[in-house]
Simulated scan of single mutants.
Amino acid sequence: MPVRRPSILVPALLTIAALTGCAGNAPELQSQLQSLSIPSTSENTPTVAALPGEPQGGKLISGATGSATEIYSRLARGAMTCWFPVGGPLKKDYVFHATADAPSRGGKAEIVIHERDSSQPNPRGPKAFVIAIQPTGDSSANLTAENRKMPNPFAAAMTDDISRWAKGTDGCATTSPTPGWIPAPPETANAVQPVKKSKDQKPKVKAAQAKPAQQP
């Protein structure tokens, strides 16, 4: 049979019980309690973890240049040009929505990519990706991007685009490891084709010039 070892807390608890009976000797009691090396209650209090589904805060995008309004304008233009054009990677399943304060009020802005819910009059469903622009001065701002429900490959491609646009580089990505992120080049069906001559088409013959009648 295993031998049960006496708990080391028992002598300590007995000592505490004996000390608490000594009224009017608070300094000595406090000194002896400290000598027991018992952790304080605050150190034993567990930390409360965030509940599942709660936002954990966005990822800071470094290198953003310009005011909050300038950054917002570049990002909104890039998103509508590269993410939401006809045939764009987010056009079918997502909806773009943005709010921005006037420059005179600092230019704080937020761009939200919602899941598309076609069953509702307002198709904006749950938030899938959130971009926040917080002014830190007249010509500077903090930029964060937070993935809520976007597939990770798309979220990574979006973050790359955001980082590039925030630094002042316009245009869409030309290469990407994410399948479907770069739209396929348009078909050449509508390209102008050279006109082919029909086999039955006969070359035009110039009419012979009429000769003047000879006098008898």
Score class of each variant (00 low, 15 high):
Pro2Ser: 08
Pro2Ala: 11
Val3Leu: 14
Val3Tyr: 07
Arg4Phe: 10
Arg4Gln: 07
Pro6Asp: 02
Pro6Asn: 02
Val10Gly: 00
Leu13Ile: 15
Ala18His: 09
Cys22Met: 11
Ala23Gly: 06
Gly24Phe: 10
Glu28Lys: 06
Glu28Cys: 03
Ile38Glu: 01
Pro39Ser: 13
Pro39Gly: 07
Glu43Phe: 09
Thr45Glu: 12
Ala50His: 08
Pro55Ile: 11
Gly57Phe: 06
Gly57Thr: 04
Lys59Glu: 06
Ile61Phe: 04
Ala64Tyr: 02
Ala68Gly: 01
Thr69Val: 13
Ile71Trp: 05
Arg74Pro: 00
Arg77His: 05
Gly78Leu: 04
Ala79Leu: 07
Met80Cys: 01
Trp83Ile: 03
Phe84Asp: 00
Phe84Arg: 03
Phe84Tyr: 09
Pro85Asn: 09
Val86Leu: 11
Val86Cys: 01
Gly88Met: 11
Gly88Ile: 07
Leu90Met: 15
Lys91Asn: 09
Lys91Cys: 04
Lys91Tyr: 07
Lys91Gly: 01
Tyr94Trp: 10
Tyr94Gln: 00
Val95Leu: 02
His97Met: 01
Ala100Gln: 14
Ala102Trp: 08
Ala102Val: 12
Pro103Met: 13
Arg105Phe: 08
Gly107Glu: 07
Ile111Ala: 05
Ile111Trp: 06
Val112Arg: 11
Val112Ala: 09
Glu115Asp: 01
Glu115Gly: 05
Arg116Thr: 02
Asp117Ser: 04
Ser118His: 02
Ser119Gln: 08
Pro121Ile: 12
Pro121Asp: 11
Pro121Arg: 14
Arg124Phe: 04
Lys127His: 05
Ala128Thr: 01
Ala128Asn: 04
Ala128Leu: 04
Phe129Pro: 01
Val130Glu: 01
Ile131Trp: 02
Gln134Asn: 12
Gln134Ser: 08
Gly137Cys: 10
Asp138Met: 13
Ser140Pro: 05
Ala145Ile: 03
Glu146Ser: 05
Arg148Asp: 00
Met150Lys: 00
Pro151Leu: 05
Asn152Met: 11
Ala157Gln: 13
Ala157Cys: 04
Ile162Lys: 03
Ile162Arg: 02
Ser163Ala: 14
Ala166Val: 07
Gly168Thr: 04
Thr169Asp: 07
Thr174Gly: 12
Pro177Thr: 14
Trp181Asp: 02
Pro186Ala: 15
Asn190Gly: 15
Gln193Ala: 11
Pro194Arg: 10
Pro194Gln: 06
Val195Asp: 00
Lys196Val: 13
Lys197Trp: 08
Ser198Asn: 13
Asp200Glu: 10
Gln201Glu: 12
Lys202Thr: 11
Pro203Asn: 11
Val205Arg: 10
Ala208Arg: 10
Gln209Lys: 14
Ala210Gly: 06
Gln215Thr: 10
